[in-house]
């Protein structure tokens, strides 16, 4: 009983429900590991040790086993991120179209390097592999929004739209 309440403390009812719904599509609970972490991350931005433990317990696996999965994937964050996650494509088409200059512009504008979070917690900058919009390169996503045809000049305007 206390276990359930502990769980609820670490995960919201909606999260638990969403994870349980995912499990219904799968032959066993552990198979929902990645989806479960995505669900929690969508709500909280990242997977804390506490979330990790709670999800592991919900899925009936060890925390270590879940962490092993979490740390394999690029899109599962085991460290806190900023309010907005900016993912800048650095793959070959964007490279040909000058993503290096865009990166410099973003870093200069925000005053942090790739992989870092701005001190005010507004942005986390991450490199991302090809976003599948090569015909509109260079591109990036901020949160779920795809932003195309980037240039160093357009960066300040774009960033000002996210607070």
């Amino acid at each position: 009983m206390s276990e359930v309440s502990q769980l609820i403390e670490a995960l919201s009812v909606e999260e638990v429900d969403a994870i349980e719904a995912e499990i219904t599509h799968l032959p066993n609970r552990e198979s929902a590991a990645i989806e479960a972490m995505r669900i929690v991350q969508e709500k909280r931005g990242w997977i804390s040790d506490e979330s990790l433990r709670a999800i592991a317990r919900l899925l009936g696996m060890s925390t270590e086993a879940l962490d092993s999965i979490a740390t394999f994937y690029n899109l599962i964050f085991r460290k806190p991120v900023g309010r907005h996650v900016l993912m800048l494509c650095d793959s070959v088409s964007c490279y040909v179209m000058g993503c290096d200059k865009v990166r410099t512009a973003v870093c200069d504008q925000l005053g942090v390097e790739m992989g870092e979070t701005t001190p005010d917690g507004r942005f986390t900058l991450l490199p991302i592999v090809c976003l599948g919009a090569c015909d509109r390169a260079p591109v990036m996503t901020i949160d779920e929004e795809l932003i195309t045809h980037l240039s160093a000049d357009s960066i300040p305007d774009i960033l000002s739209g996210f607070d």
Binding site: A133, C134, D135
Partner: peptide, 8 residues
């Protein structure tokens, strides 16, 4: 899973 760079 389209992740091959240059593929869209």
């Amino acid at each position: 899973d389209e992740m091959e760079p240059g593929t869209f």
